[in-house]
């Protein structure tokens, strides 16, 4: 028996509390049975997860499939957006079909959107992206480039569904959302080194009942009327050859939020043919504070 096994549980919990949480899940779990017990114990994780609904905390102890650790991971360390690396969204007529690839192209000005792997005229964004729940962690290197007229892409996210994917019951998820937990949307935008460009980000939180209108071809944003709360970045100017972060955290909003709608918009400033407009990379939507 090793000496570390002699330490009482309370001390082991205090020690694990000082190790980065992801390392606890990935490393400490696999060391020994004792470590496994402690590293997934509620004592360690309870105060890392804020404002969970009462119904959930009451039931949590009895559930084998769901633990505080899993909730912590699901809420704060996974991306609620699908297709964060812009696969297969070149066809602008996609708006006619349900967005199987996550994104709907709502404006296709100039030569339209162009996914680039790696991005042209700009170094790839070198950050660790949050994975989707249940997917392995991978590093994405692509970007979505806009053209010489306004291009717009949007993604509606059913937050209720995402919470259920993370193991909550509908009732628990609704209570959690109604308590107004912090939700953060972050996206990186950048411009080619040789062409100035503009970008705009809009995030809307609504009750999810409104049917989203199809391709409008106009620049106005028609979904804001159903919004419970929303945020507009305003016109952003990209820095040539560099990535910048656009990030917003919603908190203390009123009850009833069930859906998030993200809108990204971009174009270049020189009216050049091709895809010289602003580029987007690593869009993320998750609970908790901005992690950058």
């Amino acid at each position: 028996m090793s000496e570390i096994d002699c330490l009482p549980n309370a001390i082991l919990v205090a020690i694990f509390d000082l190790v980065p949480p992801l390392e606890v899940i990935n490393t400490c779990c696999l060391v020994s049975k004792r470590f496994l017990d402690v590293s997934l114990s509620p004592d360690l994780w309870r105060n890392k997860v804020n404002d969970l609904p009462q119904v959930l905390t009451d039931r949590l102890e009895a559930r084998s499939q769901l633990s505080y650790a899993k909730i912590w991971y699901g809420l704060y360390n996974t991306n609620m957006l699908s297709n964060a690396n812009w696969g297969n969204i070149t066809d602008h007529r996609n708006w006619l079909m349900p967005p199987a690839n996550g994104w709907r192209v709502t404006l296709h000005g100039g030569h339209g959107w162009q996914p680039e792997y790696p991005p042209a005229g700009l170094d790839p964004l070198n950050v660790d992206m949050l994975p989707r729940m249940g997917a392995p962690r991978t590093r994405f290197t692509g970007a979505l480039a806009s053209s010489y007229q306004w291009c717009e892409v949007m993604q509606p996210v059913n937050i209720l569904l995402e919470l259920r994917r993370r193991g909550m019951e509908t009732e628990e998820a609704e209570q959690y959302l109604d308590s107004g937990p912090e939700i953060t949307f972050a996206v990186w935008y950048g411009g080619r080194f040789d062409c100035p460009s503009m970008a705009e980000v809009v995030v809307v939180l609504d009750d999810g009942t409104d049917v989203l209108p199809p391709y409008t071809g106009r620049r106005e944003f028609p979904w804001a009327r159903s919004a419970i709360t929303h945020w507009k970045s305003g016109s952003l100017t990209t820095q040539p050859g560099n990535w910048k972060l656009s990030c917003h955290t919603f908190k203390g909003y009123s009850a009833g939020v069930r859906r998030a709608i993200l809108v990204l918009r971009g174009k270049d400033d020189r009216f050049w043919a091709g895809h010289y407009g602003s580029k987007f990379s690593a869009p993320e939507l998750y609970f908790g504070k901005c992690r950058w």
């Binding site: 090793s2 000496e3 570390i4 400490c28 020994s32 049975k33």
Partner: peptide, 29 residues
Amino acid sequence: ELCCEGIANLIRGKSPEHVRQCFGLVKNF
């Protein structure tokens, strides 16, 4: 707190196998 920090430093950034070696634990899985 200081001691816990010291032990946590031994765990940080290691693989399970390394942690086992470091603490002289036997793999009981």
